[in-house]
C-alpha cells in the first residue's frame, strides 16, 4: 500500500443472497483527508463501512485499512480506528467520566493515560460541571462532541463517523465540524457519512454511492463543475436516483 493512503479498496463487494449491497467499489483515501461518503438511504453506505471497520467480511474484492487486510486482520483494524455513529456512541447510564474511563480501557490505554486523557478532554470541552452527570441527561449536541473526543482517545489513524450530526442544532453542528477540521489538521483521517449537503462541501473529497456502486468521486468543486450545478445538494439530486 502506498504510504500516503490509509484506505485502499479494490472491487470490494458484499452480497446478501442474490442481492448485491455493495457492488465492486474501488477507491483510495489519503492520510489526513476528510472523506465524505454519501448516498441515498439503502445505497449501501453502511454495508461498505462495516466491511472497512472489520465487522463484516466482504464477499469478494480487496481492502486495506491502515495497512491491514479486512479479511485476515480485522482486530488490528479495530485497534487502529475510531468509530462513532448517531445511533450508538456512549452509554447513557454512565457518567461522562465513566464513559471516558470505560472506552479508554476498551482501547487498551493504561490507567495513568486514561486519567490524563480524561482531564484533557474535560478541559477542552469545558465539561467540569457535568463530568459526574449521566450522559443520558446531556443535550444531544454535547453527547456527540464527547463521543467524537472519546473515539479519538486512543489516537486512531482513521475515524469513521456515521451521520454524526443528525438532529444536532446548527451551532453545535458547526462546532462539531470544527473538531473534525482540527482532527484532520493533526493528521487523523476522517471518513464521514452525512445527509446534510452543506457538510458535503466541507469534505476534501466526496464519493456518492448509488445502488451499491460509487458513481462519483472527486472534490466538491470538481463535482459541481462536472455536473454543472451550483451546490452539492444539486449534484446529489442529479445522481442519487439515476
Amino acid at each position: 500500500m502506498n504510504n500516503q493512503n490509509v484506505i485502499e479498496a479494490q472491487k470490494l463487494t458484499k452480497k446478501f443472497g442474490d442481492f448485491t449491497a455493495v457492488n465492486a467499489i474501488s477507491f483510495k483515501v489519503k492520510k489526513g483527508e476528510i472523506f465524505g461518503f454519501l448516498g441515498a438511504n439503502g445505497a449501501g453506505k453502511t454495508t461498505a463501512m462495516k466491511m472497512l471497520i472489520g465487522i463484516s467480511k466482504p464477499t469478494s474484492g480487496e481492502a486495506k485499512v491502515v495497512d491491514y487486510d479486512v479479511y485476515t486482520q480485522p482486530e488490528l483494524i479495530k485497534n487502529n480506528i475510531g468509530y462513532m455513529s448517531q445511533k450508538f456512541a456512549l452509554y447513557d447510564d454512565l457518567t461522562v467520566r465513566e464513559n471516558i474511563t470505560f472506552f479508554g480501557g476498551i482501547y487498551g490505554l493504561k490507567r495513568s493515560e486514561i486519567k490524563q486523557k480524561a482531564e484533557e478532554l474535560i478541559n477542552e470541552l469545558g465539561l467540569h460541571d457535568v463530568a459526574s452527570d449521566l450522559v443520558g441527561s446531556l443535550p444531544l449536541g454535547w453527547k456527540q462532541k464527547i463521543a467524537f473526543s472519546v473515539a479519538l482517545l486512543h489516537e486512531p489513524k482513521i475515524i469513521f463517523l456515521d451521520e454524526p450530526t443528525g438532529g444536532v442544532d446548527p451551532i453545535t453542528r458547526r462546532q462539531f465540524w470544527e473538531m473534525i477540521y482540527k482532527a484532520a489538521h493533526e493528521g487523523t483521517t476522517v471518513f464521514v457519512t452525512t445527509h446534510y449537503m452543506d457538510e458535503a462541501e466541507y469534505c476534501d473529497r466526496v464519493s456518492i454511492m448509488v445502488n451499491g456502486k460509487i458513481e462519483a468521486l472527486d472534490s466538491p468543486t470538481e463535482l459541481k463543475k462536472q455536473f454543472q450545478v451550483a451546490s452539492m445538494n444539486d449534484v446529489f439530486l442529479k445522481l442519487a436516483r439515476g
Binding site: 448516498g39 441515498a40 445527509h195 439530486l237 442519487a240 436516483r241
Partner: peptide, 13 residues
C-alpha cells in the same frame, strides 16, 4: 413530527 430526519436529500425532496 420530524418525518424526514435521517432521510437522504432525494427522499426528503
Amino acid at each position: 413530527d420530524e418525518p424526514t430526519t435521517g432521510v437522504d436529500p432525494v427522499s426528503r425532496k
